[in-house]
């Protein structure tokens, strides 16, 4: 398998008062193309910090993180913005949709930054909305959507540019069980169809039941890294 993320001796420290808080401590990991992996652990274990560094939203204090061949620590603002825009998709716990835009415009946003022609953008947006089953809501505003629908829009926004990696931070934390399963099945399908790597930060049992690799973090260290055989419901869906 093709390795797309390499993490070597990664540490991240935050200043707290007069001292420092170590969020990640000498983490070593690699991720291959097409993984459906979760970073699990209690609050403060460092999973979101790790996700942010992989997403080039934050920089390591020490160690090396290489995403798609690019060293995160050495990227300029413009280069990291380019990496996020072209190759990374983000899904947040609170959806983070733009309230004044329609569903269509929210999904279209990433493509606007790529300066794609309008016709191409429209085709891609409608395709992404079809993946998540929201073509009928294209002209709705986020305020008119349920939590599940909002998160599906966020998935469509992350997937519309067909990124290599999607980083999802607690994507089901604000959803009920039915909606959680719905969006997880959607993401799993996209993972299989498009070979997109999904990385989750989660402590939701429902999410864990879909993962094929679970990396447990505790106090900023990797304490367990296990690969799981496909579950029966995944087999039936695939």
């Amino acid at each position: 398998m093709e390795t797309i993320i390499q993490i070597h001796q990664l540490s991240k420290r935050f200043p707290v008062g007069n001292g420092e808080f170590t969020a990640l401590n000498e983490v070593n990991l690699t991720f291959d193309k097409g993984e459906f992996t979760g970073l699990v652990g209690p609050s403060g274990s460092g999973k979101t910090t790790l996700l942010n560094i992989i997403g080039s939203l934050d920089a390591p204090s020490s160690g090396e993180v290489t995403v798609l061949g690019q060293s995160i620590a050495h990227l300029t603002h413009a280069q990291s913005a380019q990496l996020r825009n072209r190759h990374l998709g983000f899904i947040f716990q609170t959806y983070n949709l733009f309230p004044v835009y329609t569903v269509f415009e929210n999904v279209e946003f990433a493509l606007l930054l790529q300066h794609l022609p309008a016709a191409e953008r429209r085709k891609a947006v409608m395709e992404a909305l079809e993946w998540v089953g929201l073509t009928d809501k294209a002209q709705s505003r986020p305020a008119q959507l349920s939590g599940g629908e909002s998160q599906r829009v966020a998935i469509a926004r992350a997937m519309v540019k067909k990124p290599a990696i999607v980083l999802a931070d607690e994507p089901t934390a604000n959803l009920d069980s039915k909606n959680s399963h719905h969006i997880l099945q959607t993401m799993l399908r996209l993972n299989q169809e498009l070979q997109t790597t999904f990385l989750f930060a989660t402590h939701d049992e429902k999410v864990m039941s879909y993962l094929r690799r679970i990396i447990s973090l505790e106090d900023g260290r990797v304490v367990k890294d296990e690969r799981i055989a496909a579950h029966s419901f995944i087999k039936s869906n695939s």
Binding site: H77, R84, R86, F90, F92, N96, P99, A110, L113, R157
Partner: peptide, 11 residues
């Protein structure tokens, strides 16, 4: 919103 703009690839 500002954070999301940056996450989506804006400088």
């Amino acid at each position: 919103e500002i954070g999301t703009y940056i996450a989506l690839g804006m400088t």
